[in-house]
């Protein structure tokens, strides 16, 4: 079991706080880096959420469905909001670098396994819950801003909206992770669940830490 936050992430968050304290307005390159990172992460979540759209076809009554259905469209909406709120850079190298970073995240999370998801009684489902919970709880930019700086402008407003929604949306993941009801979740021992949760948390923490490295470079 691993419960300590990655040291590299702690350090990078501190460095980013100092950077954001010095730099009041993010330029197009900074905004683009953050937006590409969040779009990719949201994309990972969206891929999995899209699979749950199939659930009613198997004609089983499942309470999780309507929540995931709503998350799917909310995530799409927030992705669009971010696209609109970002001042995009015209530097092509930035997109290439961001793609490389995001590709490594897809590989580590083995996101393709979730393409065949939708079976909410499988281990893969539990892994999806752990991954999406980690995405929604580990990644936060607002908390890196100086607390006395008002959130304003289209970019930060979009980020705030995303993070606020993360709080509300993660309820489903939390509930299903904690629930013992066999008809909802894959039946796993507490230890097994914890291992899965912390395995994905570590991947997301590493990814966020790598991103902050890239952001500060």
């Amino acid at each position: 079991m691993r419960l300590k936050k990655l040291q590299s992430l702690k350090e990078n968050e501190e460095k980013t706080k100092a950077f954001l304290l010095r730099k009041k307005d993010l330029d197009a390159e900074d905004q683009t880096k953050i937006a590409l990172f969040l779009q990719a992460v949201k994309g990972t979540n969206l891929i999995s959420l899209s699979q749950f759209q199939m659930t009613p076809i198997i004609k089983e009554e499942w309470t999780g469905y309507r929540f995931f259905h709503s998350q799917f469209y909310r995530e799409l909406e927030l992705s669009t909001l971010l696209v609109k709120g970002t001042s995009w850079s015209i530097n092509p190298f930035l997109y290439t670098q961001a793609n490389m970073l995001n590709a490594s995240f897809s590989l580590q999370t083995q996101v393709y396994q979730f393409l065949l998801g939708g079976n909410y009684k499988s281990r893969t489902f539990l892994e999806y819950l752990a991954l999406s919970h980690a995405i929604m709880t580990v990644i936060s930019f607002i908390r890196l801003l100086p607390p006395d700086r008002p959130i304003s402008g289209p970019f930060w407003t979009a980020i705030q909206e995303i993070e606020k929604n993360n709080e509300v949306q993660q309820q489903v993941q939390v509930r299903l992770l904690k629930d013992e009801k066999k008809e909802i979740s894959f039946s796993a021992s507490e230890e097994e669940k914890e291992n899965i949760v912390y395995q994905y948390r570590e991947i997301v923490e590493k990814h966020f830490s790598n991103f902050l490295d890239f952001f500060l470079a």
């Binding site: 919970h133 709880t137 801003l145 607390p147 993660q170 939390v174």
Partner: peptide
Amino acid sequence: LPVLRRTSMAYNDYYAIQNLIE
């Protein structure tokens, strides 16, 4: 107060506070 609110959000994790309440 808005600063205190943001500070509190920065050091607290939402899911952890939920766990405390639960």
